[in-house]
Nucleic acid binder design. Structure first.
Length: 388
DNA sequence: ACCTGGTCCCGGGCTCGGTTTT
DNA sequence: AAAACCGAGCCCGGGACCAGGT
């Protein structure tokens, strides 16, 4: 915990934390600077992009593996370090004996969950390459492409990491390649997604290197949890056995395991416990639907969608008996959307797997309604969105 | 050089009406 | 027949760019 936070606690008359030191350390959407237990993945990625160390542009890469396997954690951390060490500025790597002048290669990380159109992709890339902000509205896609082309013409080499490819509501691999195609000489893409290459169209592109990531093994995941718990919770808030069990339950998915631990911590803190009891952990696990979608997807939804979800979570079971009923109930709150739009949005969210429609028993005439259920870790979502 | 109205851009709310399912 | 479902086009707001006038 930071000193600033400690001081803030005292100012508000709070005593030392009894359980949670730092929710960020437990959060499945916050990645540490140094991911635990994914060394070999880092090595394989470095192999793929080896040419950059001579200032050349490597061929494109596709990294794929299941949800919660640490893909994003590794890519984010790796790109941040690469950009710091050999990217941008006039950088030179100083060794004890000599200065190696490295032709600069820049590294840009893009999340396809936020950049969901071809326009948004190019915009995001350009925005990171130039210092002054690029307008997001009022300027055509053509204009963005022209500016980007001019940037890349001047001998710049750029590696673009595009995370979360081929999710519903995000970019497809084909679209990304198509968008980046005009700039290829000075630019390479590293795509990250869940689908196997054959299912994404990447398989048809021979020049693309592929890297497969497996889910965490049980004890590797337990180590991740131990490391997170030691940063986020007071000492002895959890036991080794507990974290091992959690790892087993999560079956290699670090996202779900952390979401459950986070939820358990919230509930334990509410109950005034100084450690996480089995009952707390059970509640935490219960609030993580499996299979479910990752929190990152939910948190990158537009504001209006998140407002709808916040209210949907609060709704009593009876108000979620059908999509129409849920739309009615939500529109009673102060959401600045019409009832029809809310209903439409609920169908959209169901399409994306963020909420689920569960068919109910037929209740008379007509097509039976479907109950609305949440498809993501609700406790974590509520906690993260209720804060200012 | 500065103002101002016109035009184009993108994204997101909204609605309509056809289709599917029981 | 009735209700759930949903594809897709319209519309509008805010922003940038442009040109013509002062």
């Amino acid at each position: 915990m930071k000193i600033e936070e400690r001081i803030a606690r005292r100012q508000h008359g709070e005593s030392d934390p009894r359980l949670v030191l730092d929710y960020d350390a437990l959060s499945p959407v916050v990645h540490p600077q140094e991911p635990v237990g994914r060394g070999s993945l880092v090595e394989r990625l470095l192999d793929c992009i080896e040419p950059v160390f001579d200032g050349r542009v490597p061929s494109d890469v596709y990294v794929w593996g299941p949800k919660g396997a640490g893909k994003s954690a590794v890519i984010r951390a790796l790109f941040a370090q690469l950009d710091r060490l050999i990217g941008r500025s006039d950088s030179q790597i100083l060794t004890t004996t000599r200065a190696i002048p490295t032709p600069s290669v820049e590294f840009v990380y893009i999340d396809a969950r936020t950049a969901t159109t071809g326009f948004a992709l190019l915009h995001a890339v350009l925005d990171q390459l130039v210092s002054d902000p690029v307008p997001k509205q009022g300027v055509g896609a053509e204009a963005i492409a022209t500016r980007l082309d001019r940037q890349l013409a001047s001998d710049r080499a750029v590696i673009i990491g595009v995370d979360h490819i081929n999710e519903p509501e995000s970019l497809s691999a084909d679209l990304v390649f198509e968008q980046l195609q005009p700039f290829t000489p000075g630019l390479a893409a590293l795509l990250v997604g869940r689908d196997p290459p054959t299912a994404t169209g990447v398989g048809d592109r021979e020049a693309v290197q592929t890297v497969h990531v497996d889910g965490y093994r049980r004890h590797a995941l337990a180590e991740v949890l131990t490391s997170r718990a030691s940063n986020g919770l007071v000492r002895s808030a959890t036991t080794h056995g507990q974290l091992r069990e959690l790892a087993t339950w999560a079956d290699g998915d670090a996202h779900d395991a952390l979401a459950a631990l986070f939820g358990a911590s919230v509930i334990a803190e509410q109950r005034g416990h100084e450690k996480i009891y089995p009952a707390d952990m059970a509640v935490g696990m219960h609030a993580v639907p499996r299979p479910g979608v990752s929190l990152g997807r939910v948190l990158s939804l537009p504001d209006s969608r998140q407002r709808i979800l916040s209210h949907l979570i609060e709704l009593p079971e009876s108000d979620r008996r059908s999509v129409g009923a849920a739309a009615d109930a939500i529109s009673a709150y102060n959401v600045e959307l019409s009832r029809a739009t809310i209903e439409r949005v609920l169908y959209e969210l169901a399409e994306a797997g963020i909420v689920r429609r569960v068919k109910a028993q037929s209740t008379g005439t007509g097509r039976p309604p479907s109950r609305v259920e949440l498809g993501f870790p609700t406790r974590v979502f509520s906690h993260l969105t209720s804060e200012p």
